[in-house]
Design a binder for these strands. Structure first.
Lengths: 95, 95
DNA sequence: CTTCTATTTGGCTATTTGGCAAAATAGAAG
DNA sequence: CTTCTATTTTGCCAAATAGCCAAATAGAAG
């Protein structure tokens, strides 16, 4: 594989990989509806809060979400809502 | 997480996970242009042919590609070209 | 300062993944 | 049948991942 192509696809794969987890898909879909704090996401996900926090770190490192502090709460939001546009296509493949 | 939601997102995540690898993205993009045999994909990818074959298995199990035999060659093709429609959006996140 | 609350980080373990090389297989052709 | 070619499968190992719990941190508030 040529070096420049390799880099291009590696960068894309890193983002896609961050999306490739059930919990993280749930989080992204929740954030699509509205900015949400970690504790509310934990309630929706049902896992330990440290687990949810780590998933959010993965999404943040990929550039998919960003946080805003308000008092004690951190509100996360989707940076690029378009990343969920292909969900219908994926459902078609998954069926 | 509710059980039905969990299943829904797990199914989607399985497909997305199959896409989340530089080599597999290269393969999908090659197949978008035209049906391609394994040995030609190996040339484009540059890895061992057994490695390429495994990647194709991953993509096949996810429902993203299908194969057609013609003599000694197996020609792979994209089952749902729409899965590459969001590449532009992903590039925007990845930058 | 101390305390409280929301969140992150570190440590640990079990599981999955990606790559190569060698062996196995499927079908074409002699 | 045997041989040849394209592809898949198996075995192995190093690295990455996900989950929980406990400990650490950041900022608000007394």
């Amino acid at each position: 594989m040529k070096q420049d192509l390799k880099k291009l696809y590696a960068a894309q794969a890193a983002v896609i990989k961050a999306m490739a987890h059930p919990t993280r898909l749930l989080i992204l879909n929740a954030l699509k509806k509205k900015e949400t704090c970690v504790c509310e996401l934990r309630d929706q996900v049902g896992d330990d809060i440290s687990t949810v926090s780590k998933h959010l770190l993965v999404l943040k490192n990929a550039g998919l979400v960003a946080a805003r502090r308000e008092g004690n709460w951190l509100h996360y939001r989707l940076t690029c809502p378009c990343v969920l546009d292909f969900t219908d296509c994926i459902k078609g493949v998954a069926k």
